[in-house]
Amino acid sequence: MHRFAKPSVFLRLASAVMPWAVGITVLTLAVGLYLALVASPADYQQGDTVRIMYIHVPAAWMGLFCYVGMAICGAMSLIWKHPLADIAARATAPIGATFTALCLITGSLWGEPMWGTWWVWDARLTSMLILLFLYLGYMALVNAFDDPERGSKAGSALALVGVINVPIVKFSVDWWNTLHQPASVARMGGPSIDPSMLWPLFLIAIGFTGYYVIVLILRIRLELNERRIRALQLSGIGEDAPGSVQPVYNPEQAGAGE
């Protein structure tokens, strides 16, 4: 556990994972989009608007999945003070926020023609909007302090408290009556979606997960570099910078090549 938390080990692992992540993402998204837009049938009730589901639902899953990941990393950074856990939490937040926002936007674009409204304040839609605000709050909070460690403490606390919202999002459609329909995939008795429509859904979900891995690695590398820059600047390097100096090979990045 602690071994993987070392940045050098992480960077080597990330370089090994990256080509696979790119390959899987491109492949699953290409096949998934073909199935979603061309090869899958229209719904017997909703016609072609059902195709919005193939991004709406995976985006919702990613929004929840990223949040749980962010909260776990936040807890690890609070308990064990792993710098990498904090960095991973910070790197996850914008990805999760993007997926959550996409879930809300595509849901709106689906709700207008089918339900007859862009938005209602029912339990599912409201709890999903709260999820987006939790992401935005976390990102604002971790950057609000001059001392990054204090920022990550406050952010981790918010991420952990907000994790209560995750089961609320998931079960809102069972606990309360809502305009949003009940769960279609993760439900008792198996999915209530025809197999021909499940394939594009799962492929795009895998593609989104691959995309998450790619951007997560990029953002962790970015954050590691920025911490090193901050450490160097604090030690007085760069204050008397004589302008432009030719960049040299940097051993710190040896494991971080693309």
Partner: peptide, 8 residues
Amino acid sequence: DLAHLETL
């Protein structure tokens, strides 16, 4: 930026 600082 990092490469620049490392040189310094």
